[in-house]
Nucleic acid binder design. Structure first.
Lengths: 240, 240
DNA sequence: ATCCTTAAGTGGTTAGACCTCTTACCATGA
DNA sequence: TCATGGTAAGAGGTCTAACCACTTAAGGAT
């Protein structure tokens, strides 16, 4: 049953190429505003052929990392200014090390979004929300369990909100969230706090009270910022 | 000076391929959950070669339109559920016809986001925000002018907020916003209302009042929903 | 009936050639 | 002298035709 691959999967050239390009950009080897080497030369440097390299470049361009224009040099864009949510996911997916330091930024944005889609979900489908949360009273007290459950909840709330834009935005957080949540929920206080939140939200849904749902969600999101700070400070303490 | 190219640019095969694939997905020719034809066959059908087709497929996969896995058929994903913000942009970019009916969804999300980053921007850089809005008192009363100015304002506010995640999200709205804003600001009431907003926001910035900034922004965002409804009803009326 | 081999079909990658666009240089001519 | 326009180099865009690697399911051995 899954048994945790003993050996890392052999990285495919295309994926590896993308990773190496991103790391080269992030560590300043290809600074923002600079030009990438020509595709033919870059392909040689990376040990892949041009079509493979180009596929990687096309993906990066779609996320806003680079700007490709016929006849001109490919330019490294100011991805924090000109990129889209894809850059968050790409960083989370390819940076093997270090918990990113912009998690608070993500949590801050979540303070604005989560109360809105939670309220809408409770307005439109209170029964569905309540049903979903029934299983949440008996969650196993493990980080991975909470990480998965919490993600599923938010995802379902955006869907029940009836506004697909919420879902699209949340999906952009997916990879980063996966990295973050394991650290966050390693904190026993975080798990305890979320249990209370799930209970409160369920009550709000059962009593058809979108106002209350919005309120308890906002409070939870605000407190999660502080809990995150505690969690990163405890990294390595092994508190589970 | 720009002079509106008399002839449409010749669509490049790669771009055309992407457009045709998306339209085929949107119109149900390739329904959600179905399998795309094999790359070799699909390339023939589209009149391009495999490398070109693959570049388009890679881009679509990055946005969440399709799922590509080695050895298996490429599957069309439920993009509204599993895609990311890129699908919004891709639709706006490739759908030549019809103003999208999910603009209200975007405006609703904006109600949650704009007050937050506006408040943060006024907290961190009130002078910069006020300076920026100085030029907004003499805006030419034209739809295109307002569309550009409004976009620039929101973009700058997300930057001044100090939270890059706001910027990344907003960039995901870029293409759709471009289509929407021209319709929205064709309404004289919309332009008048925004003038008031720019003035109010400038006052809030000058008096170092983030609370007020947040408040006037929220009010503006809420009213924009109604104004949009009026604007779409007036389509073709030519009110400028 | 079960297991394992195997072949067919899929996406992944390679290689090298040719086409198109952009730019910069430079000869030309007002 | 300066504007014009041709030209060549170099960038990305596309094509061609193979071969590699993974997945699946059919079919044979046990």
């Amino acid at each position: 049953m899954n048994e945790e691959n003993r050996w890392d999967a052999v990285p495919k050239p295309a994926e590896l190429t993308e990773t190496r390009l991103i790391e080269a950009i992030l560590d300043g080897h290809f600074p923002v505003g600079s030009h990438l080497p020509a595709e033919r030369e870059l392909a040689v440097q990376l040990g892949v052929t041009r079509p493979t390299l180009r596929e990687a470049l096309q993906r990066l361009a779609r996320d806003g990392w680079i700007e490709i224009r016929h006849g001109r040099h490919t330019r490294v864009r100011n991805y924090w200014r000109e990129g889209n949510l894809g850059v968050l996911g790409t960083i989370a997916r390819h940076k093997n090390h270090a918990p990113p330091d912009f998690v608070p930024n993500l949590l801050e944005v979540r303070i604005s979004l989560a109360p809105a889609y939670t309220r809408a979900a409770v307005e439109r489908k209170p029964d569905h929300v309540a049903d979903l949360l029934n299983n949440y009273t008996t969650l196993e007290d493990a980080p991975q369990t909470f990480a998965t459950a919490d993600w599923d909840l938010h995802r379902q709330l955006t869907i029940d909100s009836g506004n697909p834009v919420f879902t699209l935005i949340l999906n952009g957080f997916s990879d980063l969230y996966g990295n973050m949540a394991l650290i966050y929920f390693s904190l026993v206080e975080a798990r305890a706090r979320s249990r209370v939140f799930y209970q409160d939200l369920r009550d709000a849904a059962l009593s058809n009270d979108p106002e209350a749902a919005e309120s308890v969600t906002r409070q939870m999101m605000i407190e999660s910022l502080d809990l995150w700070q505690v969690a990163v400070e405890n990294l390595g303490g092994g508190e589970s």
